[in-house]
Design a protein around this nucleic acid. Structure first.
Lengths: 211, 211
DNA sequence: CGTATAGATCTACAGTGTAGAGCCATGACC
DNA sequence: GGTCATGGCTCTACACTGTAGATCTATACG
């Protein structure tokens, strides 16, 4: 019965969503399935294998439920759909972002997502020789962004700008001084992500025009 | 004696470098210092505190040993110096990248690095209102890149392109098909990183020109 | 000298992943 | 029908993890 494997993954996913990655222990998953910890091993080989499988499941739900990304729309909207989908996924499953960095795109679903980006870039006019590089550039940025959001890098620092300045030699932060006015108000992260994507779209256009 | 704290951090850094982040346990650090595990707690409060302090130490060595980044050189070379420094740091200390995503730039050294980037962007002519956003864009990309390298996302997949195609419905990867010629040869990662930085420099120029 | 204090220690607890041996029901074969 | 193998499951055990709590000790100060 490979149905047992799906059952295990379901339980692990649920656990990760409500208690975080740290809450996914073999014992906890086993208890959720109603079985002893060691009973999981014939199905997942390893804890690392379990985590890989969890990520695979997540990606498969993405590729199945995002027809607009593959549709015939403008490459720009497809690229943005990819980015927004990734961001939405990580918002719902913050634990997944850590895992995304640790393995190459190797499952069929991950490869399919890469292919979607390849097609968008080709349609944009990027020379085929440059497509893999630009795909990595874009996806690296997007992954970095969602990892920052999920991991707390964008969270409010414990030192506010004024406090920061106080800890350093006077005039040690001329850059901060000149942009101070735009440092204090809270950031609209949705708008910033959209603005970044606009810039990346322009970057792609520039690569295409030069090619 | 805060010298004990430095001793602990030295041991922890050395341990992380040679055995990875997983090798940094309180017991292992304590043994390296020649003391019992609980003796560390007056100095670092927590394991999380220890990790934070380790990252801080690493960043401080960077800010102290990179005068070329702060020099009066062209903003482009300063930006590239920042990126190369970050990449070099993560190459020597792969464990640090994970940590970089989990805390906002909060230590004096981290803020100093951000300030370096602020100044480069200001010198490039980026409107002050946009500087914080573009700084986050650039550093997010750079962090994403080094995390990918350190974590293995760029490593060779266990499925080569041919194997990938075989697992999917015929014609399921038209994007891969069209760039297949540039998918098989091994990638020169140094060159790719440099090319990406060229594109980011152009992005910055474009933002500056528009502002 | 006596005493406060801060650092180091020891013990213990509740976890973790997983190796190894044994149990037991199912199905295949003579 | 009887025998046997196989594969999923259980139980036990081991070597770890971070750290709470109580105790001990050596130093500095009134």
């Amino acid at each position: 019965m490979t149905g047992k494997r799906e059952e295990i993954l379901d339980a692990a996913l649920a656990l990760a969503d409500e208690r975080g990655l740290a809450g996914v222990s073999m014992r906890a998953v086993a208890q959720a399935v109603g079985v002893t910890p060691m009973a999981l091993y014939p199905h997942v080989r390893d804890k690392a294998g379990l985590l890989d499988a969890m990520l695979g499941r997540l990606l498969s739900t993405v590729t199945q439920a995002s027809p607009e990304m593959a549709g015939a729309a403008d490459w720009r909207t497809r690229l943005r759909a990819f980015a927004d989908t990734a961001r939405g996924l990580s918002a719902g499953h913050p634990w997944a972002t850590t895992l995304l960095f640790s393995r190459p795109a190797v499952t069929p679903d991950a490869v399919l997502l890469v292919d979607l980006l390849y097609r968008a870039l080709l349609d944009a006019g990027v020379p085929p020789a440059q497509v893999p590089r630009v795909e990595r550039l874009v996806s690296t940025y997007v992954l970095g962004w969602i990892a920052s959001e999920a991991g707390g890098r964008f969270g409010p620092g414990t030192l506010d700008p004024r406090g920061r300045r106080g800890r350093l030699p006077e005039g040690g932060l001329p850059g901060h001084a000149r942009v101070a006015a735009w440092l204090d108000p809270p950031v609209d992260w949705d708008a910033e992500f959209a603005a970044d994507l606009d810039d990346l779209v322009r970057l792609v256009e520039s690569v295409a025009a030069r090619g």
